[in-house]
Each structure stands twice: as structure tokens, then as C-alpha cells.
Design a protein around this nucleic acid. Structure first.
Lengths: 194, 194
DNA sequence: GTCTATAAGATGATAGAC
DNA sequence: GTCTATCATCTTATAGAC
């Protein structure tokens, strides 16, 4: 078996480039050079930059969804699930100067090709739906107390992590991410582990 | 008196372009066309794109600081001050598809010229220092209750608004911004107005 | 699948006339 | 201060050979 499919390798490198620099700040040449190909060879795998972006975000969303399913299986306490959700962001941060792909692309939203936009909003919906279920469950068994709807709490939490990550990178300070996440999780603790 | 200095007009348009599209997704030609100049004429006022970005962010930071001073003068209650802070973001959102200039540039941080970066982090420090004073004051007179340091609360709040704004724009839904801000402000209310 | 060659247009920036 | 002309470079993408 070869180490890896070339298409996947291109996506890996493209993902890093977008997470670090943004969709509008890398070129096919940048990308090609890092996988040791020519720019037209990249075009062979991805006919346009928009299509590359779409597939990139689709793959990221699928992978993220799998991680969430994994968390759900392994952690039962709602606060623990939220901590693990935060953990996914910390993991990305530690990869080095990267933002959440979704946060980066959402910031560039106004300039993105339509199909990429659709993947970005789909990512928001997936992540927020999962979080809303955690919040709703936590409220149902009395382990979480919070104002407003589970959906609203989910959006606030997810948005807070996206925003904290942007600042954390600029300041090269992971604590900005960690403490923002924990600050919100703690403010939800009215249950037994409070 | 002429309506306005050309340099200011250029900065106004550049600010909108950056807030909507990002620093890497507009050109001198775009900018020049909107103020009815040629691209080289813009260069006459701003020798490089980096210098334009720096002056843009410096002006934005000064203006934001003035707004904060104004809030401090007119509102005494800490929760009211936080609401007014949120109001600044709502105001920007209503200008149409714009992000906070600081949030946009922080996301593009990896690709920014150094002097622009310095202005971005300075903006964070200014905004967070102001918020931290509000949080500290609120805790001191018992009108706010929250976990951790005022500085940590300030960072969380500011980051949450930046993140919420990004999502609010993608979904064209101001409530995403408003409810995120209010969700946090409410979770701080243990005082008389709770 | 990968390459070289190339197109067609954009980009940040400069020179020099008015 | 504003313009036209120009530059070198970059960008996305295609054509066609190997």
C-alpha cells in the first residue's frame, strides 16, 4: 500500500494553508510546491479552487462529526462532553498557528464561492445541533443550568470558542482558548460536580 | 469647507472593504474605483498596502476607544456598560455584512505585515482592559458575579462577541450576536437587577 | 498523473507628465 | 493630487506532450 492517496495529501496541505493563511491567501503554486507537484497537477485533482475548498470543508465536517460521535460514546456527563468539545479546538491549536477551518472560512464568507459557503453553514448547523443536544440533555437531568434555549447556549458556546481561538493564535497563548471554554462550562455548573 | 478630506474618504472605503472582504481580498484598484480615483492616486496617500492597513486599524482603535469612554461617562451600571459594548457590535453589523475590523484582521493575522499586527493586538488589549475594569468594578460593588479574574471574563466576553458576529453575518441573523452577548451578560447577573 | 508552456487577467508599486 | 503608462510578479486555469 502507498503511504497515502495524492488527493488526500493535497487536501491535508490545503487544509493547513487555509487554517493558517486563509482561503484567499494561498495559491495553487504554494499548495503544489508543498506536495512536490506542479500547479497544473493539482488542477488535475481539483478542477477549480472553489471545488478544492468545497471538498476540503466537506471532509473537515465529516471528520469533525466523527469526533463528536466518538465523544458522545465515551463521555456521558454533559460537562465532560463540553470539555471534550473544547479539547478538539485545543488539539487544532497545538498543530501550530491554525484556526478552526470553519471559523476561518466563515470570516472570509463574503468572498467564498457558493458551494463553499454551503459547507460552512452546514458545519455550523452540525456542530450547534450536537451541542444543543448536550445542553438539552444536561438540563433534562439537572446537571446543567443555563438561561435561554439549548440552541442559544450551543451557538454562544461554539461562537465563543471560535472567537477565543482567533485571539489565542494572535497572542500565541492557548490559555485564551482554554479559559474561555472553561469559563462558560463553569458558569453552567449547578449540578453535583459544581 | 469640503465635505471631507480625501485621505479620510479612502480610509472609510478601505475600512468597509476590509470588514466585508478582508485585507487579502481587496485591491488598490477596487478601493480606488470606489472613491473615483486611479490606483496610483491612492498610493499617493498611502505608500503601501501595509501602511494603509496600519493607519486603518489605528484610526479604528482610536474611534473605538472614544466610544468606550463615552459609554463609561453615560452608563454607570456594569451590566448596562456591557450591553452598550455589545451595542457597538450590533451597530457595525447593521452597517451591512461587516465584521469587527479587529476580528477580521486577527483572523488574517498570519499574513499581515508586522505593523498591522501590532495594531491588532493593541486593539485587543485596549478593549479587554476596558472590559476588565467593568468586570472588576461590578464585582467590587457586588453587582456582578463571575468565576475567575476580571481579565479572563473580559477576554471571554470579547472573544464571544467576535465569534458570534462572524456567525451572525454568515447566517444574516443579528440575533446570533445579540443573544450571545445577552447570554453571557445574564449569566453574570446576581445583583439587584437580576 | 505528471509535466512544460502558455494564456489572460489581477496585483502592488514606480516614473514621470499635467 | 491626480493622471497615464509601465513593470515585474502572481494567480487561476487550459492545452497538449509524455
Amino acid at each position: 500500500m502507498p503511504k497515502r492517496d495524492m488527493k488526500s495529501r493535497i487536501l491535508d496541505v490545503a487544509q493547513e494553508l487555509v487554517q493558517v493563511r486563509g482561503f484567499n491567501a494561498f495559491s495553487f503554486h504554494d499548495l503544489a510546491a508543498r506536495v512536490r507537484l506542479s500547479a497544473p497537477s493539482v488542477h488535475h485533482h481539483f478542477p477549480s479552487k472553489g471545488e478544492l475548498g468545497r471538498q476540503l470543508m466537506a471532509r473537515y465536517r465529516a471528520g469533525f462529526g466523527a469526533r463528536l460521535a466518538d465523544i458522545e460514546r465515551r463521555a456521558r456527563d454533559p460537562r465532560r462532553r463540553l470539555s471534550r468539545f473544547l479539547g478538539l479546538f485545543q488539539e487544532t491549536f497545538r498543530l501550530g498557528d491554525r484556526l478552526c477551518l470553519c471559523g476561518m472560512l466563515a470570516t472570509e464568507y463574503a468572498t467564498l464561492p457558493r458551494p463553499v459557503r454551503a459547507e460552512v453553514t452546514a458545519f455550523y448547523r452540525d456542530a450547534e445541533a450536537w451541542l444543543a443536544r448536550v445542553f438539552a440533555g444536561g438540563r433534562a437531568d439537572g446537571r446543567l443550568t443555563f438561561a435561554g434555549s439549548p440552541a442559544s447556549a450551543a451557538r454562544t458556546f461554539f461562537g465563543a470558542l471560535e472567537g477565543a481561538m482567533i485571539a489565542a493564535r494572535a497572542f500565541k497563548d492557548e490559555k485564551r482558548l482554554t479559559s474561555a471554554g472553561n469559563w462558560i462550562i463553569q458558569s453552567l455548573a449547578r449540578g453535583r460536580t459544581a
